[in-house]
Every structure is written in structure tokens, then in C-alpha cells.
Amino acid sequence: MDRNGFEPLILGFACNWCTYAGADLAGTSRIQYPPNLRMIRVMCSGRVDPTFVLKAFARGVDGVLIGGCHPGDCHYMEGNYKARRRIHLLRKMLRDFGIEPERLRLEWVSASEGARFAQVVADFTKTLKELGPLKKDAKIAVSQQD
């Protein structure tokens, strides 16, 4: 359900060889998807430091999407496996922080999966709309008298 027309902000990290290429393919195929995603290009999903994700959530991003090559296909051999391990632990910790683990999504999208990329973005946007905006706890710290 749409919470008063809330439009989630999604930060994406796409690996150059697979996901970024798949996203481009969605474009050349003119497959439409929601405009909520802002992509940062990296060479490999293994480049994504969990600190980047923490920063994004600290700045109020509603969802983070990380895209890499399918297991076994990583252009750099094992980067995506490292990403998988890091994201698994990070999701666990996000839960401890009171941030719904569904807000962090790791997807394997190959260079030929344009339609799938579009589907993932549409799906994630819908999930985030249902979850609502990230609890910002903006009045971080101080007094209940503020």
C-alpha cells in the first residue's frame, strides 16, 4: 500500500561486467521500470564495502541494491562470493540496528538479463513502498524535552 505517495530512494551498486551491462540492456530493450534507483558503477560487486551501505542508511536512503555476476561467472573470479559473505553478515547486523534486512538486496544479474534487471528494480521499489521510509531517528540523542 502506498503510504501517502511515498517514493522510496534506492541506492544501487552495479558491477561493470554483469549487472551494469544488464541494466544497459534493459535500456536498449526499452523495458520500463520505476525511477527510484540511483546507480553507482563499480568494477565488481566485491568492491562494495559494507561501510558504503551503512553510510547510505545513515543518510536516509530507503533501500540499497547491490548487483553482481552469477556465482561462478565473476569477471574477477571470486569478487561476487566475497560480496555474498559480506552482505550476509551485514544483513544480520542491520537487523540488530533495527533496520529491516529487506532494505538491503543482493541480486545476481548477468549482462544478458535486461528484463530481469527491470523486474528486480520494480520489485524492490514495491517492497520498499510497503516497508515505508527508513526510520531515521532524526532526533538522534538528546532529550525528550526537545
Partner: peptide, 15 residues
């Protein structure tokens, strides 16, 4: 040179 100690520790342990 580290922005968030916990984030880096998590990254290294997972890796």
C-alpha cells in the same frame, strides 16, 4: 583512514 570501525571489521571478518 577508516570511516566506520564496525563496518570495516565486519567486512574483513566476512571476507
Amino acid at each position: 583512514n577508516v570511516f566506520d570501525q564496525g563496518g570495516k571489521l565486519l567486512s574483513a571478518l566476512a571476507s
